[in-house]
Design a protein around this nucleic acid. Sequence first.
DNA 1: TATACTTACTTACATAAAGTAACTAACTAA
DNA 2: TTAGTTAGTTACTTTATGTAAGTAAGTATA
Lengths: 102, 102
Amino acid sequence: MDKSICPRFEKAMGLLSQRWTGMIIYQLLFGPQRFCTIESSVGVSGRVLSERLKDLETEGIVKRDVYPETPVRIEYSLTDKGLALEPLMRDIEKWSQNWLEA
Amino acid sequence: MDKSICPRFEKAMGLLSQRWTGMIIYQLLFGPQRFCTIESSVGVSGRVLSERLKDLETEGIVKRDVYPETPVRIEYSLTDKGLALEPLMRDIEKWSQNWLEA
DNA sequence: TATACTTACTTACATAAAGTAACTAACTAA
DNA sequence: TTAGTTAGTTACTTTATGTAAGTAAGTATA
């Protein structure tokens, strides 16, 4: 048979199936947030969070804004491309509620 | 803040964000398939495929049927719980077509 | 002036997950 | 008896992730 799957689908799945990526995007649906907030709410280590946010920024899914306050505030938020993933996240919510035990 | 996310959602995301799991489920939407077909169409190694199929069977997402032909035919297919993931897969398809380059 | 405090990372090192290739089991066919 | 098939498993290597300590930039405090 060999690889008849759409490469765009494969890329999307590759992104979303990296560990923590989905949770980070889901968390950002609640609004812009800073590094340490995402870190503690999602439960991801700083090392990996840093890596993921860079990747997501490169992919144009996440935006990084710097506010030179004291101490500096850096906020991460979803771009339109990132926000377009909301229906998908809602589907996961629905599926988990219908098919997983509490 | 710390972990206000629904544990069922977290479990669902944990399942789906394991490498290859999404692709395996997507491939099975085309119908029941044998081990070697999934292996070559998805591009996953036998070692990991074997592991994932066991996990998915344990979770009740995939079903394994043995047909004692020659050589033996073993078919993997989605249960109702697995089929319920189709809308999600379609959303990933849509998103990838709208937002990723060809 | 020096020490401490904050956020947002990065670095070094240990452990876990995944890739690769060879191997096994059960069966049939030549 | 040797070879061929599918469905795995095993041993070993490479990559990804977790953990904990360290850095940089800035302000406030003693």
